[in-house]
Design a protein around this nucleic acid. Structure first.
Length: 430
RNA sequence: GUGGCCGUAGCUCAGUUGGUUAGAGCGCCAGGUUGUGGCCCUGGAGGUCGGGGGUUCAAGUCCCCUCGGUCACCCCA
């Protein structure tokens, strides 16, 4: 006896089958139309990189880099990691290929993080996003956010909120950091237990701590926006005005400090208000004006966002929108004469552009029609011995109420040689 | 990495204070007089009760371990 072992998808991963996968196809298709109409081009990057791409990009100290990376050594002793997010890889590919500026790219990719799975969080999740290299203009920040907004609108989401902030450039961010550090040092006994230890290492992180003690303390702390330099302030100001001009609502969130070290100036995040799970962020991003350089490239500005597909769909479920039905099949071929007719006819139907299926094995006519009904076929083409003899096929419409016995059911005989061209002319199949 | 809850058919679950061959609904398959989908009716397939160990005359039920799922913390999409 062979021991029966049932393999399962690894913890934190899952299989997406039809019909759920239809939503994914449709979602990606909608997104690609939105970004391509704004002249973004698809970029496809490797799923793994030298680990340095991520440690330098996202910051050695970030939680994701410290404890969540899928790191491994390959047979050539290279230290690699599965991408935990999209931006660092895309920027690395910019530095390597140096496309002409400005470079506007979009992507869809899996992302891997080793953490305990829970609602809306996976070890392999999927992101769609864009990155732009080479533009400082704050109007681009507006464009970027507008693309996200367009996607949410296209899906029918309405219970969402946009939060924005600016964390300044290298100069004013640094001086703000000093200011905050002084404040926190003076009142460190009011911090939560964890940040009493770690606040001096990266004081900005205290701002998005969820502990009540840290929240009430940081409400009194100096604000980022009050300490921006003139240029950063002007940038943020024009960003806000642009959003207003497009009618995109937002809230300034002084505590919005995103998790990766590479952000400068504008940061933003959309949350799904209908989501009751702990993970309600459905997309976020910001500027990263130093990242290209830190990955070995020229000093060029960058900005981008990432949207988690799983969470986006959870948000759609919570609002009961974007529920996709798979397209029904056009024709189901019923053949009770041995299968030759079904084999050849389905092939011809598909060549003619119709969505067609059939039953395999020698099933009864009733069984085959049940299958046709269950699959939601618009019509069946029936071939029995009489039809075969007469070189005809019976066309039977299925997408209608079943009629009482004795009432003529809609069915007609058509010459086999003409069936394809007959069907192609029918409006039902266009 | 830390903690709470939960593992019985493909799915959703029942299973009484431990007591015969472990059940239902849905789904699936086949039939309901030899060629017709719904509904209805009949029958069928499908489970080593997550796995291992223990207590007991007897364990799906009690205890321990383990694996898996789930939710929360941390952090993020």
């Amino acid at each position: 006896m062979v021991e029966k072992k049932i393999f399962r998808a690894p913890s934190g991963t899952r299989d997406i089958l039809a019909p759920e996968s239809y939503r994914w196809q449709k979602l990606i298709s909608i997104f690609s139309h939105i970004v391509e109409s704004a002249n973004y081009g698809l970029v496809i990057n490797p799923l793994f990189e030298e680990v340095g791409v991520f440690t330098r990009g996202m910051g050695e100290a970030s939680e994701v880099v410290k404890k969540e990376m899928y790191e491994f050594t390959d047979k050539g002793n290279r230290t690699l990691a599965l991408r935990p997010e999209g931006t660092a890889s895309v920027v690395r590919s910019f530095v390597q290929n140096r496309p002409v500026l400005p470079w506007k790219a979009w992507y869809v990719t899996p992302a891997f993080r080793y953490e305990r799975p829970q609602a809306g969080r996976y070890r392999q999740h999927h992101q769609i996003g864009v990155e732009v290299i080479g533009i400082q203009d704050p109007d681009l920040d507006v464009e970027i956010v507008s693309l996200m907004s367009q996607l949410y609108q296209a899906l029918g989401l309405s219970k969402i909120e946009l939060k924005i902030n600016s964390i300044g450039d290298e100069q004013c961010s640094f001086s703000y950091r000093q200011l905050l550090l002084e404040f926190l040092t003076q009142r460190q006994d009011e911090l939560c237990e964890e940040h009493k230890q770690s606040y001096s290492y990266n004081p900005l992180r205290v701002l998005d701590c969820k502990k009540i003690s840290c929240i009430s303390l940081t409400e009194q702390a100096p604000k980022l926006l009050d300490n921006l330099c003139n240029d950063c302030y002007a940038h943020f100001d024009r960003f806000q005005n642009g959003l207003k001009s497009l009618g995109i609502e937002f809230k300034i969130d002084h505590r919005l400090v995103r998790g990766f070290d590479y952000y400068t100036r504008t940061t933003f995040e959309f949350v799904g208000l209908a989501l009751d799970a702990a993970q309600n962020g459905i997309g976020g991003g910001g500027r990263y004006n130093g990242l290209v350089e830190s990955l070995g490239g020229p000093s060029e500005a960058g900005i981008g966002f990432g949207i988690g597909i799983e969470r986006l769909l959870l948000a759609c479920d919570a609002e009961d929108v974007f529920q996709i039905k798979p397209s029904q099949i056009d024709i189901f071929v019923v053949d009770v004469t041995g299968g030759d007719q079904a084999r050849d006819l389905t092939y011809r139907l598909r060549q003619a552009g119709l969505k067609a299926d059939r039953a395999f094995g020698s099933k009864s006519m009733r069984s085959q029609l049940r299958l046709a009904h269950r699959l939601g076929a618009k019509a069946a083409l029936i071939i029995g011995s009489e039809e075969l003899e007469a070189k005809k096929v019976a066309l039977r419409w299925l997408n209608q109420e079943i009629l009482e016995d004795g009432v003529e059911k809609s069915q007609q005989l058509i010459d086999s040689s003409e069936i394809i061209s007959y069907l192609k002319d029918l409006s039902e199949f266009h």
